[in-house]
Amino acid sequence: MIPSVKLKPLVWHPHIAPVDVSDATPEQIEAMKVTPSNKKISEYVRTLAHDPESYVARTVLFNAIMYVEGGLQHADRELGALGASIANGCKFCAVVHARRHAHLTQSDDVVSALYFDKPALLAPRDAAIERFARRLSAVPSQATKEDIAALRSAGMDDKEIVDLIHAISIFGWANRLMHVLGHADSGK
């Protein structure tokens, strides 16, 4: 048995000055209306608004990959995001998506197993997702045909696997923004 872990949210601080809303260009103002999960204008959004074109394009894609209806269960997408964030070393994203996974599944079991680095405690489907996320996140990728076969054995069809590939890959992107352009702490 391992203890059950409940993670508290972290606060993100940028390494560069975010765009000041009062000095923002019309394009930056427009861009800041498109926010991840439609939350308020955070420091993260104002930091990325320095380059409004890429910010808008990426956020629209991110929201589709993580929240579009149908296909892969949302909890599985969150596990893909979590596995990638651990592999890429983005503590902030890992905590956000661990909490979403725990909320969606109403269980801390998966997060606790990963927190204590005990993937052997995961159920077969979760283990297949986590392993694929970790290996696809390596540069170059270490994922194999056997990893895909394990996802299929766990009952995933090709549309769901395509969804999972995108959930893992978009964190190859997001982690390289959050963890490079800023740092996270407990906010205390």
Binding site: I16, T47, L48, H50, D51, S54, Y55, R58, G172, W173, A174, R176, L177, V180, L181
Partner: peptide
């Protein structure tokens, strides 16, 4: 920021 987005 633009460089970070390109890399990512």
């Amino acid at each position: 920021v633009a460089l970070s987005e390109l890399i990512a």
